[in-house]
Each structure stands twice: as structure tokens, then as C-alpha cells.
Amino acid sequence: MTSTLRKNSIVASGGLLLVILPILVSWSGHDYYISLFSRILIYGLAAVSLDLLLGFSGMISLGHAAYVGIGAYVVAIFFHHASEMEPLFTWPFVLEGSENGLLVLPLAVLISALFALVIGSLCLRTRGMHFIMITLAFAQMLYYFFVSLEKYGGDDGLSLYSRSSIPGMDLGNDIHFYYLCLGSLLVFIFVARRLVYSRFGLIVRGCSNNERRIRALGINSYSYRLALFVIAGAGAGLAGGLLANQTEYVSPGLMHWTLSGELMVMVLLGGLGTLFGPVLGAAVFLLVEENLAMYTEHWMVYMGPFLVLVVIFAKRGLFGLVAGGENGNE
């Protein structure tokens, strides 16, 4: 049980570090790092939601960025209409734009979940390689859809001019925004943790290992897997809504499959089938990108082979290396 203790203390100190980070940064004067770490938290959130699929239920979705993009576009489109003072649509009822974070962020979650429901219900009819390719293809479909959507900037995307407003918070202030991201991430991890160990979680973890057995037990695995797919999509949508606020800009690039691939890389780097690992993975990936990019614009030529080596030799990821314990048994 000492490995549990070690893991808990690592998670606790990591969490504490994230909580006091803004103070440390303002002491050191590198204010830039606040927004970098906000980005890390947001990508961490997206990566955790992806890990629910990859690590806990064995569904290899290669189109997870689509839901990040949907979430981001929901925030951006509502913002756009609010600033143009033009309703989104007038039939069957009038829907006005909005900059209210308490409205648009939940909407980002909801609408991403809805897309995940429709796409997931089709994708989950398939298995294995088919599933991988189809999730990818649907994400690309949304990508091309937004590229051709001239009304919202097409290929060039949309700018936001400011962040959403939440009563009692000033999201324009990077420190406030940082804590919003941290809070969202922690809430999502907490929810995910309950989920993974609940009866529902037991079923989906079982599906990842042996779906045929699940069916022999009398469980229609399809609806459970679909529910998890929707929950993961919702988490990604929240990340997208935050990301739109962080950069104050959205473009179809957010849905591009390379972003889906990078989210996968973060999960793998951090530790598959763990809830804190993906956050660590996101931090490492973005920090490496940031720092390598300072020395060479061709950082990917190093990142690529490094990734291959990690896959072949270090399957448990960084979280597994530092925290011990078994893969998938947090």
C-alpha cells in the first residue's frame, strides 16, 4: 500500500503547486507563464476526457479534437452574435448571442455532448481499426464543415475581442482565468474519478478488457460505451469553451486531426488509464514544445522519434514512472 501513499503525495503536491503557481509566477515576474499554464490546464482537461475513452474503456478515438472545436465554436459564435447584436436564428424562436460565461460554457458542454451522441452512435457500431478510422473521418468532416462556413470566418476563424463574463470574476485578468481553468479541471477529474469507480465505470472498464464477456453477462455494452463517449465529448467541449476564451480566437484548426493526435500523445506521455497522468502529459508536451521551439523551429523532428521510443519502451508513461503502481489501476 506504500505505492498508494507515494502516489497520493505526488498528486497532492502537484495539486498544491498548481494552486500556488500564480503567486510563484508573480514573484518571479514571468507573467507569461500564467497563460502558458492556463493552456496546460485546458489541454490537460481535454486529455483527461480522452483518457476516459483510451485508457479506461479501450475506445481509440482519433477524432477527439472535434469536440474541443465544437465547444470553442459555441463560445465564439454566441460571442460573435452578441457583439453584432444579431440573433443566431429567429425561427422557431429567437436566440440571441451572449457573452455570459455561465450560459455559454454550459452550452459548450451540452452541444459538444450532443455531437458526441450523434457521432458516437454511428461510430460505436464498429470495432477496432474501423472505429479509429471512423472517429477520425467524422472529425475531419466537422473540420471541413467549419472551413466552408463563411459566415463564421471559414478558414480564417473568428476573433473574440474579449473573454466571457462571469459574475464575481474578471476573466480578462489572467490570474482569475487561471483559477477558472484549474477549478474546471479539478471538478472534471473529481467527477471522472467517481465515474470510473462507480457501477457504470465498472462496466465500461470491463468492456475495455473483454467486451464479449460483458455481453455474455447480459449487458448491452453499446449504451454504456455510448454514454462514456458522450461524457468524454462533454469534457472536451468544456476544454474547448475555455480554450476559445484563453486565446480569444477560434479556427477550424482546433478540430484538425493533428490536435487529436497530440491529445493522444499527452495521454500516453502522462500515463494511460490514470486521471492525473494526462495533465502531467499535457504539461510536459506543451513545455517541451515551448522550449524546443526556442532552440529550433524543427522541434517535431525530435519529438516524433522520441514518441516512437516512448511507445516501444516506456508504456506506462511518466505518471507511472514517478508514481509507481500498475497501469490502469490508479
Partner: peptide, 11 residues
Amino acid sequence: NFHFWRHSLRS
């Protein structure tokens, strides 16, 4: 089994 919250072993 759409019980999302309580720990499975404690249900």
C-alpha cells in the same frame, strides 16, 4: 447500471 456516482463496491 447507469449509476454514475457511488463507488461500485459500496452500492
